[in-house]
């Protein structure tokens, strides 16, 4: 029974992890470098949402604020710091993104201090479905995450701009020949990708607390989820997030919670050794 409970817990945390993982992998698909500043951007999004929620905005409004602030910050850093370096290869841009992530983290620290903060949401007792314990709030948060994912998939599948993004990710040259402007697609990928990362930071903070290290805490799991599913694959990121979420919770029962970080590393190691393209390959959608 405790295994089943751990799996349910894993699905909940996997759903929350999926949102920023989609953002991360979507950016990789278009921009072709792993943008590690997601740690700082997720923190920024969490604090933007916190301020908006504290100012009286409802959940949807706060999520929109987290999305917008994180998206704009991500876009600005891509323009100023990451993309100018991409011509030298993915590595310099990736290293620059580690630096910008640190800058963002410390900007948040400068503004808000190190103290953890919590969203002023009522904390409810869990409800039991059979023997399985479920938190009503986490179900709500999970619902929000699923709704967002649905929106992203719908946008990618059915809108012109979504199709253009997928085309650009699949083959930039061919897409450019078809009249799709790669810079605009890159900007859009930065904005939407980082927006999702910001929303993910807020969703993760809703039930726990937020501080300048909120994003750094999820960086490894997020990266592992994207690699496991296949870097650049949006459905892969979702699958990877669920698998990592469940593996992390199950690992608590087997090896103890202190080795949680090892789950992410082992997943990355196994994928890179056995199936470097990830479970679903690189297909953007």
């Amino acid at each position: 029974m405790i295994i089943l409970q751990a799996l349910v817990n894993g699905i909940v945390s996997g759903t929350l992890l999926a949102v920023p993982a989609i953002g991360f992998t979507a950016m990789f698909a278009v921009l072709r470098f792993p943008n590690f500043s997601v740690s700082g951007v997720a923190t920024l999004g969490a604090f933007a949402g916190y301020l908006a929620y504290g100012a009286g905005l409802q959940m949807a409004g706060s999520l929109a604020a987290a999305f917008a602030v994180a998206g704009i910050a991500g876009l600005a850093f891509d323009k100023v710091a990451h993309l100018p370096l991409i011509k030298q290869g993915a590595l310099p841009a990736a290293i620059a993104s580690i630096a910008t992530g640190l800058i963002l983290e410390n900007v948040v620290r400068l503004g808000f201090g190190n103290e953890p903060r919590g969203y002023d949401r009522p904390i409810a007792r869990d409800v039991f479905i059979g023997d399985i314990r479920v938190s009503p709030q986490q179900v709500e948060t999970m619902g929000l995450a699923l709704l967002l994912m649905l929106l992203v998939f719908t946008a990618l599948a059915f809108t012109r701009i979504g199709k253009a993004m997928r085309a650009s990710a699949d083959n930039p040259e061919l897409a450019a020949l078809k009249g799709i402007r790669p810079e605009r697609i890159a900007m859009l990928a930065s904005f939407v990708g980082m927006g999702l990362v910001g929303v993910g930071g807020m969703l993760l903070g809703l039930d726990s607390s937020i501080d300048p290290l909120t994003g750094t805490r999820i960086l490894l799991s997020l990266f592992a989820a994207a690699v496991l599913g296949g870097l650049g694959s949006v459905p892969g990121a979702v699958l990877g997030a669920f698998l990592i979420g469940m593996a992390e919770e199950l690992s608590v029962l087997v090896v103890g919670s202190q080795y949680r970080a090892a789950v992410g590393f082992v997943a990355i190691l196994l994928v890179l050794t056995l199936r470097p393209r990830g479970l679903l390959g690189e297909r953007a959608y």
Partner: peptide, 14 residues
């Protein structure tokens, strides 16, 4: 022993 970087301790509490 738990990982102080986790965002939830549901399984640990269980």
């Amino acid at each position: 022993i738990y990982d102080d970087k986790k965002t939830t301790y549901r399984t640990e509490v269980d």
